[in-house]
Design a protein around this nucleic acid. Structure first.
Length: 548
RNA sequence: GCCCUUGUAGCUCAACGGAUAGAGUACUUGUCUUCGGAACAAGUGAUGGAGGUUCGAUUCCUCCCAAGGGCACCA
């Protein structure tokens, strides 16, 4: 962001330009807009801080510089500059906050990835929602982004399913029925261990292209996808690609060959595995019965992605329980040379949903909780609260925001009272605040073209100052949220913005302001707040209705 | 048993090695003869325990305690 870089540059010049300058926004407003601890880092204390501060001359951006505490350098920005920033928000509109730091770079985001023949459970909500938010963030920063839904549509479980479908003649298949069959298979296999062999036999047939196995598999895929697409429609989630694991079936042989000839894969108990330094368990490429594993497919996937897109970053938005596996996978992929050596392979390791008892979120019967039911109930609850028109926007927005507002790595307790809470830090609160700004603007005939926003002679209320000292940080937050794979930072930012605006709204009359200058300025503040809220919510994948 | 992650107000969560650890909720008390009360304001209340590194530690390191997850033929 231009402003932060300008401040950094001023300090950097003061210390000779050799050291990387870190800036932060002090928590207490009496400590300025930006603060640097560089004098402390250089062990120079207050003396050095004062020297640096003296070197920095106020200009169009920097209003004043002060030394405080044990050696902090605090910097205040010019109010005129900050008001100009509000005008930029209006003129750039939906593009405000965009950047080009990602230009020429490609990032692949692997998210959602539900399993075919399994119900779409709440477990997949995090991956789907966070993945989409990361997708939006990176795109906003100028990256070329590929969103790939890596469907779980291959594996031994299909051998088991096909066996069950053939032996127990079935009518019309549903996802629910498929899941039942899968569970039933495992119950039967407990009594008759020979069944596992049958399952593997049928999976082998599927991999070898057996017509009947293939036909049944396709039916499972079609039935499941119809259900998944219904959910994506409600969530307004989109993908660029949805290759799925089955896409890589004919690409695995090459991976296995390469791993063998490079001496990376070794034989162990009739299976082919890749040993990873520092990890006890090796990564399995070929099972003892000759079948492949998910690791083989994931390596083929990375090879394909590397060849096709040559990405700088590949983000796997997958739960923390697979941390060990991804650690192995990434090492193996690097050794096989499937991605460029500087490429960042990231596993976001999100936490999971817990029930109110602190245990994994399940139904009373121990089944995974279906996401569609959750979404329908959220919409229903929103409708009962009086949002007939915007029930879906508000209900789904509440669920999404609740997910995104948490630190990505922490487990989340699933509590309806908290999710559907309209008050306080919630999606509906942000949507409400946006609707409020639009309502005021609609009544005002506001137009940026015939207004004057000079702050000369205008005495700003503390609430107004707080907002102008907050708006310009939007771009920085977007960048940080993307860089740290942390959409919750954007949630925090937007919530504080909305809080600040509501506080201002309660203290200051906008339409009834004294004098045209004050009125125009407050309307500008309102318009800018609304625009940033809208841009931010849109990055989170949450809609902002004008009325609700 | 080994490995990873997490322990912050009654509850649910924040915090970039920085300055007085922030919110929401719950509870208590208020504001507004209103531009949308899904609002605003005030109060009560917290870093699991013991050491260490640092000018400065919720954050980094070690040990202990507790919880969750993982540990090749499921993904």
């Amino acid at each position: 962001m231009w402003i932060r870089d300008a401040v950094k540059k001023a300090i950097s010049e003061a210390v000779g330009g050799q050291i990387e300058v870190e800036l932060e926004h002090p928590e207490a407003e009496e400590h300025g807009d930006y603060s640097s601890n560089i004098a402390l880092k250089l062990k120079g204390g207050r003396g050095l801080a004062q020297k640096i501060a003296d070197f920095i001359k106020p200009n169009g951006v920097i209003a004043k510089v002060e030394v405080a505490g044990t050696g902090f350098i605090n910097i205040w920005l010019q109010k005129e500059y900050l008001v100009k920033e509000l005008e930029r928000v209006i003129t750039q509109a939906q593009d405000y906050g965009k950047d080009v730091i990602g230009q020429g770079k490609t990032v692949i985001i692997d998210y959602s990835a539900p399993n075919i023949a399994r119900q779409f459970g709440v477990g997949h909500l995090r991956s789907t929602i966070i993945g989409q938010a990361l997708y939006n963030l990176y795109k906003f920063l100028g990256y070329k982004v590929i969103g790939d839904n890596h469907l779980g549509d291959w594996g031994t479980q299909f051998g088991k399913l096909i066996y069950m479908i053939i032996t127990e003649k079935q009518g019309e298949l549903t996802v629910e029925k498929l899941e039942e069959l899968y569970v039933k298979f495992h119950k039967m296999a407990e009594a008759d261990p020979g069944l596992e062999k049958e399952g593997r036999k049928w999976f082998k047939k599927l991999e070898d292209g057996d017509t009947e196995a293939r036909r049944i598999w396709q039916e499972c895929v079609d039935v499941s996808m119809a259900e998944f697409n219904r959910i994506y429609e409600i969530l307004k989630v989109k993908f660029d690609e949805a290759y799925g694991e089955s896409f890589y079936v004919d690409k695995m042989a090459a991976v296995i060959d390469e791993a063998k000839t490079m001496g990376i894969a070794i034989k162990s108990e009739e299976a082919w595995v890749i040993e990873i330094e520092g990890v006890d368990i090796p990564l399995m490429l070929v099972k003892s019965d000759g079948g492949t594993t998910y690791a083989t497919r994931d390596l083929a996937t990375l090879k394909f992605r590397g060849d096709k897109w040559n990405p700088e970053i590949v983000i796997y938005e997958v739960g923390a329980e697979q941390a060990l596996y991804f650690q192995q996978l990434f090492v193996a992929a690097q050794r096989l040379g499937y991605v460029r050596t500087q490429a960042r392979l990231v596993h976001t390791k999100h936490g999971l949903y817990l029930g109110m008892d602190g245990k994994r979120f399940r139904t009373r019967e121990g089944q995974t909780v279906k996401l569609e039911g959750i979404l329908i109930e959220a919409i229903d609850r929103a409708r009962k609260l009086g949002n007939t028109d915007q029930a879906q926007t508000v209900g789904v927005g509440a669920v999404k925001y609740f997910d995104l507002m948490h630190n990505i790595q922490s487990d989340i307790v699933f509590d309806w009272e908290k999710i559907m809470n309209l008050e306080g830090n919630s999606g509906p609160y942000l949507q409400y605040t946006f609707a409020r700004t639009q309502s005021v603007l609609a009544k005002s005939q506001f137009s940026i073209l015939n207004s004057q926003f000079g702050v000369n002679g205008l005495k700003l209320h503390p609430e107004e100052e707080k907002i102008i000292r907050w708006i310009y940080r939007f771009g920085e937050v977007v960048e940080e949220a993307a860089g740290r794979y942390a959409p919750n930072l954007l949630c925090n930012y937007l919530f504080e913005l909305a809080q600040g605006y509501n506080s201002f709204y309660n203290k200051c009359s906008i339409l009834g302001a004294q004098g045209p200058g004050e009125r125009d300025f407050r309307l500008l503040l309102t318009a800018a707040t609304g625009q940033v809220l809208k841009n931010g919510l849109s990055l989170l994948g949450i809609e902002a209705p004008d009325r609700m």
